[in-house]
Amino acid sequence: MLFIPQKRFVWILTLIALSITAIAILPFIGMELMSVGRILTDSFHRDIFIAIRLPRVLTAFLAGGGLAVCGLVFQGLFRNPMADPYTLGVASGASFGAAAVILSGAAGTALLGVPATAIGALCGAFLSFALVLAFSGAANRPTDRAAPSPHTILLAGIAVSFFFSSLLMFLQYMSDTRESFHIVRWLMGGVDVFGYRPLLTMLPFAAAGLILTAANVTALDHFLTGEDIAQTRGVRVRLSRGLLLCAASITVGGIVSVCGPVCFVGMMIPHLCRGVFGASHRILLPACLMAGGVFLSICDTFARTVIAPAEIPVGVITALLGGPFLVWVSRKK
């Protein structure tokens, strides 16, 4: 896939069309194929369509788009193609939070309609983010106005990630079979939601994160050219980086709390989009949002139909499809 600036417009239109098609068509596909006529005449099918299938597709779309944008932000900030939404230990922090709630036996409860596991995951995500900032700030050199460097933050992220993974293993070791299975299932990630509550839980986080990202999108462009150029062009490197990290963490926290750690979307989609749209984040941001949304909602449709009436966790599908696909695309280059 070669990047041709003049063709970007066509690609964006294609993505918009794909997004609309995905949201409009995918809810009809499921264990049972529905037709428009049946939904209009049969109230049982209408209920399934409106209360189960539509919110599920919308949740998958928002989660996929959000994760792809966060991947884009992290890859840009760290100038590292390996970075993904979970690089900073956000996923392991969230997993630890959710596991702690499951172990405490509060998994079935909810606060203001938000499930306790989601709250636990959210707290874990933010805790890991705060730890990363604290660690990388401590390693900061006083003479360097732009510090801490991306590498410092990346290292802190990996350290925090391992820290929470170990805590999670400890919790799993201490738990009984039922709880352990519950934790493992949560870790696989999935969009098996019912109704609009989960969507509404993550929407404010995703929206806040996306708006904050959009507001700093030019800074993200500058980070790619190197921090020296960025700073001499008037970018407040430290502030912008902090805001972008915060934006991505809020978004990921919100999404992970509902869907669990759905991997690979955040790493793969930005790569594909860069190949098509070039490097400018002004175009990449909406492109990733739509491409990620389309990708995850299609994956989720697979997940709920392939071995119907049973379901596969969508995280399994994304990795199964995504891995070979990414290798294929990079070979083609």
Partner: peptide, 11 residues
């Protein structure tokens, strides 16, 4: 990264 020269200068 693959910015076009015009994009880079515009930044």
């Amino acid at each position: 990264p693959p910015f076009t020269v015009r994009e880079y200068v515009g930044m």
